[in-house]
């Protein structure tokens, strides 16, 4: 078996919420005992609804946050608790693409300076060399070198996302964490960016951690998928397995809720009752039991453990075989 590029082991992250000076301290349980591995060259996706902890997980891997418990290994090295100085050389291996292409580019910098900035930190290239590399990258992502002279506001959303991608590519990373890279874009532009991401993966041997709420996008781009709910992974499976044979009731509901652009196909939606429980006050037992249509007494009392039920197919449900 080949070695995993990233492996996340039982990671927990909570954020304190202060409600007044004398109030009891409360915590938002953002990530709850999450474990997964990403193999080199694959696209691993985290899907889930807002507030399920997918972005927090991405930030933990990128060392933008430190976990409260658990370990994060990158290329055989434990990185969750190393210092900023030790992390700096690794930053060129792990790059991030953000959701909001408007907010993640400095409006006062020219595009060529934005893309070239990582080179300034990670290499000793001269100005001329940097510019040459930047021009090359602009072409790679489908912009022209002349665009380098412009400022971010002169670009459309799709073009800005391309700039974000070029910036992530400058230092030849191994892992790219793409946090909802296409959700702010229109469908026709979204398709362009997704195709670009796939092409780059082939050309540069990249590994992606793809974070998204859109199950159809995730299906197109991923090799393996983990479905998150309330800070925990409820089901992990290879793409085909997850879509053809979902075992967790939440995954089923999620898949059935996605509107399909085909008016001929009338399917039965599984409508989940109610809203997400608050993450400051997690339910006892199975985290999903408050909304689960198959909930039993056991679910209310006992938290299910992760069980492997097929090749690479892991489910956290008491009744994974009986549904």
């Amino acid at each position: 078996m080949s070695e995993a590029l990233v492996s996340v082991k039982n990671v927990v992250k909570t954020f304190p919420v202060n409600k007044g000076l004398f109030a009891k301290k409360k915590f938002v349980h953002a990530v709850n005992d999450v474990s997964f591995e990403i193999m080199p060259g694959e696209t691993f996706s985290l899907v889930g609804e807002s507030g399920c902890g997918k972005s927090t997980t991405g930030r933990l891997i990128d060392h933008l946050l430190t976990p409260d418990a658990g370990e994060i290994w990158f290329e055989g090295k434990e990185i969750s608790r190393i210092s900023q100085n030790e992390m700096r050389p690794l930053r060129s291996d792990i790059q991030m693409i953000f959701q909001d292409p408007y907010g993640s580019l400095n409006p006062r910098m020219k595009v060529q300076d934005l893309i070239g900035e990582p080179l300034l930190i990670h290499t000793n290239m001269s100005g001329g060399e940097r510019l040459k590399k930047v021009h090359g990258l602009l072409e790679v992502v489908g912009l022209s070198p002349a665009h380098g002279e412009r400022y971010p506001h002169e670009f459309s959303g799709g073009q800005r996302q391309r700039i974000g991608i070029a910036r992530a590519l400058t230092v030849n990373p191994k892992l790219i964490i793409a946090d909802e890279p296409v959700s702010a874009l229109d469908v026709s532009i979204q398709a362009q960016v997704l195709n670009l991401l796939q092409k780059l993966q082939k050309d540069y041997d990249l590994t992606y951690l793809f974070i998204s709420h859109d199950l159809s996008v995730v299906e197109m781009i991923s090799d393996r998928i983990a479905v998150m709910y309330l800070g925990t992974i409820v089901e992990t499976a290879p793409k085909r397995e997850l879509y053809s044979n979902p075992r967790h009731p939440y995954t089923r509901a999620l898949l059935s809720a996605v509107p399909v652009p085909d008016p001929g196909r009338k399917k039965k939606r599984i409508i989940l009752e109610g809203d997400l429980p608050s993450t400051t006050n997690l339910p006892d037992g199975c985290l999903f039991h408050t909304r689960c249509p198959y909930c039993t007494d056991k679910c209310r009392k006992e938290r299910p453990m992760a069980r492997t039920i097929g090749e690479g197919h892991i489910v956290k449900c008491h009744y994974n075989n009986k549904m």
Binding site: V187, S188, Q190, A191, L194, N195, Q198, D214, L215, S216, V217, E219, M220, R240, Y243, L255, V258, V260, P261, D262
Partner: peptide, 12 residues
Amino acid sequence: SVPKLGSNMTSL
């Protein structure tokens, strides 16, 4: 250009 669920497409 809309990704369709269950279509097994790899490029759009």
